[in-house]
Design a protein around this nucleic acid. Sequence first.
DNA 1: ATGTTC
Length: 477
Amino acid sequence: MNIERLRPIDEWSWSLPKAPEETRGEVRLYAGRELIEHMDDKVLEQITNVAKLPGLVGAAMTMPDAHWGYGFPIGGVAAFDPEAGGIISAGGVGFDISCGIRCLRTTLAAADIAPVARALADSLFANIPAGVGEEGSLRLAPRELDDVLTGGARWAVGEGYGTEADLEFVEEHGCMAGAKPEHVSDLAKKRQRGEMGTLGSGNHYLEVQVVDRIHDAEAARAFGLAEGQVVVSIHCGSRGLGHQIGTDYLVSLAKGAARLGISLPDRELACAPIRSPEGQQYIGAMNAAMNCALANRQILAELTRRVFRHFFPGASLETLFDVSHNTCKPETHTVNGRPRLLYVHRKGATRAFGPGHPSLPARYRPVGQPVIIGGSMGTGSYVLAGTAESENRAFSSASHGAGRAMSRNQALRHWRGRELIDELAGRGILIRTKSMRGAAEEAPGAYKDVDLVAEATEKAGLARRVAFLRPRLCVKG
DNA sequence: ATGTTC
């Protein structure tokens, strides 16, 4: 992207000075110069389109890891007021509804896992179903699947996956209100019946990591993190169900937009007013998909514990936090000094509530919400904490990952999966996957530099760095 | 992301 097109607000925030007339708010990009210069022009085009949608409040924004997506950029944040004709867009949530990361802190040290690393990697690979269309050991009857869609992680705990103690540390306490299974198609439900407790493919993973560096001692203490400690991060979402809901509702939201005379700057931005039948049906289905994803990560956390228990009977794996990064949620935000209920789209962006937010567990309330930036395969991830400034800057949002720097097809031309895996093994990082193609697509070089993303996230005031996690073992979808 | 192009 030609940075000359942007006006610097400061070193880490940029605004589009000559936005088209139809925009209803500022177009703002959060990132450092280097990240902006390497960003696809499509990011600016797409977020400018988002700024044209009805009922936008404040700025349409991108996070430092932003890249080209379907309609909305991935790393896009935009809030809409339902009382001002505000819209909901399936492209603003993403196909993998409620994709997110569950982070578990363990009582193990790096030295504990070193002697069994290969066996542990093999056992995780054998017991965590991963890959396209891969099914798990659960087969749910239609009524049971409806219970998943209304119960979320709470349902999974009731089925013996994990404990009540996990739920305090899951967004929405594990259960998103307002789920309407009746607005989820039979096809979406059918696709999901065998896919609960599966990781999926693409950028999804289960990683065993070691805390490599502490940036903020006070927050690390609150999060229960210390240097040398083993943690496990699980990145996955709502699998076939969320994808099918996205596909179904692109059609019905486009009809809603046409029916109500909303002109779409891009057909990929199919949307309908929040206060419309089409909008309400999508919201009900999206909330159901959110519960599907929360239940899925709850099951996977328990499957992980069972594997660890076999190797380390005395170890415990507690949920540090579970946060989604493909959502649209109703939240109260202060705009010009006045609290307003807004629907905040975060597509490839993490909610990042600051210190004192009432929805946070008491343990974290003094330091802010844990924010997880999942790195690319073999590079590293960050745990951050929400800040007070993020509320004014980005409706309390932050980055979600390293962010792609190259398309999957481009990556396939540059790398071979087997060579990458061997090279990573040489550096002590064990990858387990069924798909060599997938591994090539996920080459670390096809992603942005996660250190730059985390630095920009902090410097832009979106969240502050707490700990850097270095990968050891990785099960890839 | 995705029964990886209805």
